[in-house]
Design a protein around this nucleic acid. Sequence first.
DNA 1: TTGAAAGCGCTAACAG
DNA 2: CTGTTAGCGCTTTCAA
Lengths: 342, 342
Amino acid sequence: MKPQQVTLNDIAKKLGISIISVSKALRGHHDISKKTADLIKKTALELGYTPNLMARSLASRKSNTIGIVIPQIAHHFFSSIMDHIYNYARTNNYAIFLTVSQENAEMQKIQIQTLLSMRVDGIIISITQDTTDFEIFEIVKKRQVPLVFMDRIPDMEACNTVTVDDKGGAYKAVEHAIKLGYRKIAHFAGHANINIGRDRILGFTQAMKDHGLEINNDWIIEGDFGEKSGYDSFMKLYHEKNLPDFILAVTYPVAIGIYMAAKEVGMKIPNDIDLICFGNSHVQELLSPPLSCVDQPPHELAKKSMDLLIENISKNENFKYQRVVIDTELILRGTCIKYNKH
Amino acid sequence: MKPQQVTLNDIAKKLGISIISVSKALRGHHDISKKTADLIKKTALELGYTPNLMARSLASRKSNTIGIVIPQIAHHFFSSIMDHIYNYARTNNYAIFLTVSQENAEMQKIQIQTLLSMRVDGIIISITQDTTDFEIFEIVKKRQVPLVFMDRIPDMEACNTVTVDDKGGAYKAVEHAIKLGYRKIAHFAGHANINIGRDRILGFTQAMKDHGLEINNDWIIEGDFGEKSGYDSFMKLYHEKNLPDFILAVTYPVAIGIYMAAKEVGMKIPNDIDLICFGNSHVQELLSPPLSCVDQPPHELAKKSMDLLIENISKNENFKYQRVVIDTELILRGTCIKYNKH
DNA sequence: TTGAAAGCGCTAACAG
DNA sequence: CTGTTAGCGCTTTCAA
């Protein structure tokens, strides 16, 4: 068996005082004389005491842990968000329990269960693209575990959400393309059943309508948010000889898929076909050509989500659900900067 | 206060049986008649029972959780490793507690303490570039918590390590460049006090020597593993008018820094200056030019590390430390494929 | 300022 | 197959 872990009891015995005093001293409870407290701390250090968080959580009914569920981690958007969340959690003295659902609603459900089982103090989640069953979220609500939906949210009332102005962002991007002179504009969209997919489509169509352009349904291609989807959509239109002049890509990976496909068939961006995407990333500057985008600031998403969650955790009963929307910004680089179809 | 969480006790009472039976039934202990077991499960579901992992871990002295410490998350190499670790953990029924040290040795120490406090069953760690104090690792060993160092390892005896053949990889890359015809070769290196930095420098110098090339100390620039370091090193040499023809970049981010700097001063890769880096990533294909690299397969690192850790956890006392080294592979794309200095 | 009593929710042994 | 007895290590009243 493992060597005995040092417990409060060991310290107490050694010093001939009660466990309680040790516990209090170690947590800095001001209920204890500085002298004994110091002695206790010193002894704890000598003995190599490490508090048992399991026991502590069990007894205090509080884990000081926040659970996170995201669909992917090897994706710049999410890993960047996580970076900020970890930072922010540290300064607020929370541990983070991160869980990756891999775009699988079934897994997502299990993972939320696990977080509940761990008695996390709150949950931040960005749902999978195919989430249709919201029962698990209702369970979380019923358990009164504070919950914040981030970026990808379910179509549900009475909940906390932090999103980006997807519709506005798509609108801005398409309007910009139109003003440059593009008319044959496509949207490689995500799933329409999830907010970010739906709202971007909405922004796209709205911009087209507002500028008197007809919407070609062949050019709104629903797919998912990954590279392959972008690649496939491009290839489909290419083989149908039905490529547009301009594409609004629903995510950065989709744009990457387009770059790959274009490269493969020997088409030049932005001359033969131009595009812009949702989601910023440093390396976009280095692509050929540098990729323009609608920025959805990860640090904002991370910060607002954490703020909201922590507020909810601390206020508890007298907390009211909030919906936060973050503005997007057009970042223009080597694509979507001039009309190339003269 | 929160609504009462449903406990085993609640189920037991309702059914008029003992807690133990419920506990056993729910864990599928074959010690219970199928009939009662089914009834118990049904009731648990109805009542919305969620096991309390804290309590379970406390009682069983096992958390079924593996702790991970990595220096960064918004870095393709690490997020990709994590992807595989999450996958692998799931099939082995382990939860993952991920911690990000942000290249800060002090934080790293605290985080390891936290993992110990959580009584994780084992730890996988990739240490920060400035780790010089190994005391905390000794503490982990003393506690007999299985530990595997991955990729970035301390200079320590008697421990589990999973690394990449850094020296061999660097050697291969430099040899290739030499064979292409390059003579003025630099290495934008990492910290020499950590294995991956040191071994790559070793491979570099070895290859140079073996091919009768002189080593110019101005051209082995120690820095860190980030973009800025690559950028700065390039700019330094540029302003000194002392740029080489070819650079071996210690990491992919360092290579990105070089791309940025080169772009800024109007130098063309690979014509004006050529390079290769450690670490593969999908988007390298899309850079201009596509970046060649020494691949350190993330899935291999993840898998071997998990294997080793799980073996250590299960065998426990009669387990012997192991050192696993993974082979690298040269992936040639648009850089490091021909000599451009005629 | 200190401590005693009581229990958080669960499981490991062992006995029936 | 079922249940009893004892905790796991810690914290929270509340009384001294």
